[in-house]
Computed example of a mutant assay.
Amino acid sequence: MKVGVVDVGSNTVRLLVASVGSGEVRSLEEGRAHLGLGEEILLHGRIRRRKLDELDAVVTEFARIARKHRVRELETVVTAPGRQGGESERLLEVLRRATDGPVRVVSAENEGRLAYTGAVARTSVGPGVVAVCDVGGGSTEIVVGTALLGPAWVRSVDIGSLRLTASLLHGNPPTRTEVESARASIREAFSGIAPPAPELALATGGSARAIARIVGGAYDAE
């Protein structure tokens, strides 16, 4: 069965067209557009008309690509932009019109659970406790569980790479003072969060991929 998914996040809007069957997902075509919806919400409290028009054009094209593959289902999921911005119904209406299909706002907890399931499914993990940290543009989810039983502990914080950069890291490169302010903001946001100790930790999301390109894909506790 061929399906299409449009993922509307704080940094990017993504398309995946895939063939699904026999427990496998095979990518047929992918698309990606950087729109910065999270920064728009942070600066203006909502997504303004010009940015909604950009989103409309991108998602309309993604829907055309998906239907070119004769997908049986085309679903749009919205993460932090659907939870954090004012007038979110305008955002959802634009997406419904552009795709002529269902649009779903994913709760922070479900976003974490989905990230965990995807990360564990694509990684060779043992039976022990696994943690997944999903750093997005507008929020960060930490999830702990096992491959067999799935997520057991989920927390989400409204702080992500885009929100942090737009609000505190203005220089290029940022100044030492800006970096210290960002670190203090992160410490405050995560204070009081004490996840169960895992045997293995995985990081997902665009920020994790960027870090992996700089320092490598794996590192130890040191």
Rank of each mutant, 00 (worst) to 15 (best):
G31I: 10
L200R: 09
T123W: 13
T79G: 00
R67P: 07
E178Q: 15
E73Q: 12
L95A: 01
L114M: 13
L16E: 01
E87D: 15
S124N: 13
A182F: 12
V105R: 05
A80L: 09
V6D: 00
G216E: 07
E111S: 01
R97C: 10
T79C: 06
I65L: 12
P102E: 13
I142C: 05
I41V: 15
E111L: 02
V20N: 08
S10H: 03
R83P: 05
S181D: 14
E180Y: 10
P196Q: 02
V94P: 04
S88V: 15
V20Q: 05
V106I: 11
V130G: 00
E188Y: 05
V135T: 06
L95K: 02
Y219A: 14
I211Y: 09
S27Q: 07
I186T: 10
L55C: 00
E75V: 15
L37H: 03
R14W: 03
G192A: 11
V125E: 04
L92D: 04
T175D: 12
V58E: 01
E199D: 15
S139H: 09
E93P: 00
T79P: 03
V17A: 05
K2Y: 11
E188P: 03
L74N: 03
A197S: 13
I211P: 00
R32P: 03
G217W: 07
A166S: 14
V5C: 10
G138Y: 00
E73L: 10
A98S: 13
E199P: 01
R72D: 14
S191E: 10
V105L: 11
R187K: 13
V125K: 02
L148I: 10
L164R: 10
V129H: 02
K51F: 08
D220F: 08
S161P: 03
D53Y: 11
S107W: 04
R183Q: 12
E87A: 14
V143M: 08
E89C: 01
G206S: 08
L95V: 01
N11H: 05
E109R: 08
R104M: 09
L202T: 10
E93T: 00
E24T: 11
A121Q: 12
V125M: 06
S107D: 05
E180W: 11
V78E: 04
E222Y: 09
V20M: 09
N11E: 06
A115R: 02
I159Q: 01
E199G: 15
V58L: 07
T175I: 05
A80W: 04
A119H: 07
S167P: 06
T117V: 07
V5N: 02
T140I: 09
V20T: 01
E24S: 13
P174A: 00
R50N: 08
S124G: 12
A184F: 09
L43E: 14
G82K: 05
V125A: 09
R176H: 12
S161Y: 07
L95H: 03
S167R: 15
T117I: 07
A98F: 02
